[in-house]
């Protein structure tokens, strides 16, 4: 089971990094979201994997999973929603303002184009 969780983290990270390196805003945002999942799960697993022992205190039960990573990850999930929303808004604003959803600056190519037009 450890292998499954660890490899899931790996797959999410790889997918996240690949999409983050794309050239348009939307895939980049999705990539960052994937990375967020990977990081959250990674932090969560720092409490190790325990099945069927939620940190809800019960009489007569003495084994609980580690609650602290859960608390930290819970707020991380909510915060990452806020951050995703901000990034989406920035990307959207940039697209609406310039009709261009590239994440990289396009100035260099546009000046090259102008120069090309000038010479031709």
């Amino acid at each position: 089971m450890e292998l499954l969780v660890a490899s899931a983290i790996g797959v999410l990270t790889a997918g996240g990094i690949y999409l983050m390196l794309r050239l348009r805003t939307f895939p980049v945002i999705l990539g960052i979201s994937l990375l967020t999942y990977a990081v959250n799960v990674f932090l969560f697993t720092s409490g190790r994997l325990t099945v069927g022992a939620p940190p809800i205190l019960r009489d007569g039960v003495s084994t609980y999973t580690d609650p602290l990573p859960q608390a930290l990850v819970l707020t991380a999930i909510v915060i990452s929603f806020g951050m995703t929303a901000v990034v989406v808004m920035i990307g959207l604003g940039a697209f609406l303002g310039t009709d261009d959803d590239h994440v990289d600056d396009q100035t260099d190519t546009s000046t090259l184009d102008e120069e090309a037009e000038g010479t031709s």
């Binding site: 450890e2 292998l3 969780v5 660890a6 490899s7 983290i9 790996g10 797959v11 999410l12 990270t13 790889a14 997918g15 996240g16 990094i17 690949y18 390196l21 990977a38 990674f42 697993t45 720092s46 190790r48 994997l49």
Partner: peptide, 18 residues
């Protein structure tokens, strides 16, 4: 880059899960 990153996080997570 992505695969290297994925392998690294996998390795790290697997290491401490054990």
């Amino acid at each position: 880059v992505a695969i290297a990153g994925g392998l690294a996080t996998f390795g790290l997570a697997y290491h401490y899960l054990l």
